[in-house]
Simulated assay, not measured.
Amino acid sequence: MSEEKLYAVKTDEGEFLSFSDDGDSVWNKAVGHFEMDKQKARSWAYNRGGHVVTLIEEPKKVVLSKKQAGIVEKARLSDIPATYISGRTDAYNGEESLLMNAYVNGYTAAKEKKYLVELCGLVTTDGAKQYLTKKNGKWFACRRMPGMHQDFTNEELNKAPEWAQQLDREEVTDDGIR
């Protein structure tokens, strides 16, 4: 976040001081003139009415894992949120301050990585590659098909049969395989 501030002159009715091309002042609900010099803004407010307001940048939201987001959400229900967060994080690796920041300024949850598991050497009769697939609790081989569950999280693959857990995984991105 920038340390520079912008100032504007605003009325109690929510209109901002603005200037037309010829230098005349006008009041406008949608647009205002912003100034980096607070003294100049104070002078405008004194001469034209209104009061000085400071415009600040919205803090950037931090990206949290699913587990970290859960801690922040549960802290919102706690009587002492900071204590709740500090009791569930490691202050030495910076996680505590990251979650405190997320509690105050907001956060976005990180997308969980997904993996595709090619079954090397296994092809259909027409030569299409086969991939690990799961449907109705059953694991099987299938060509790449939309609507089939073939992109797995690490957690899902760790629950797969032991033989499937030992296969190579390729990370899948939104636009295909990495």
Rank of each mutant, 00 (worst) to 15 (best):
G106Y: 04
K111L: 05
G106N: 06
Y107H: 13
L116A: 09
G106I: 05
D126I: 11
C120M: 14
C120L: 11
M100T: 12
G106F: 01
N101P: 11
L98D: 03
K113N: 14
D126Y: 12
E96L: 03
E95Q: 04
K113W: 07
E112T: 15
A109Y: 08
L99F: 03
M100P: 01
T124C: 03
Y107L: 02
V104L: 08
L99K: 01
A110E: 12
T108K: 03
A102T: 12
K113Q: 09
G127D: 13
N101H: 15
E96V: 02
V104Q: 13
L98T: 15
K113S: 06
Y115G: 00
E96T: 15
E118L: 02
K111D: 15
G106H: 06
L99M: 01
G121Y: 02
D126H: 07
A102S: 07
E95V: 05
A102Y: 04
G127V: 11
V117T: 13
V123C: 13
V123P: 07
G106L: 00
D126E: 12
T108W: 00
K114M: 01
G106E: 05
L99Q: 06
E95G: 03
V123L: 12
V104E: 14
C120F: 09
L116Q: 14
L99E: 00
A109W: 06
S97R: 15
N105R: 06
C120V: 09
E112K: 08
E112I: 10
S97I: 12
M100S: 04
A110H: 05
M100L: 02
A109E: 14
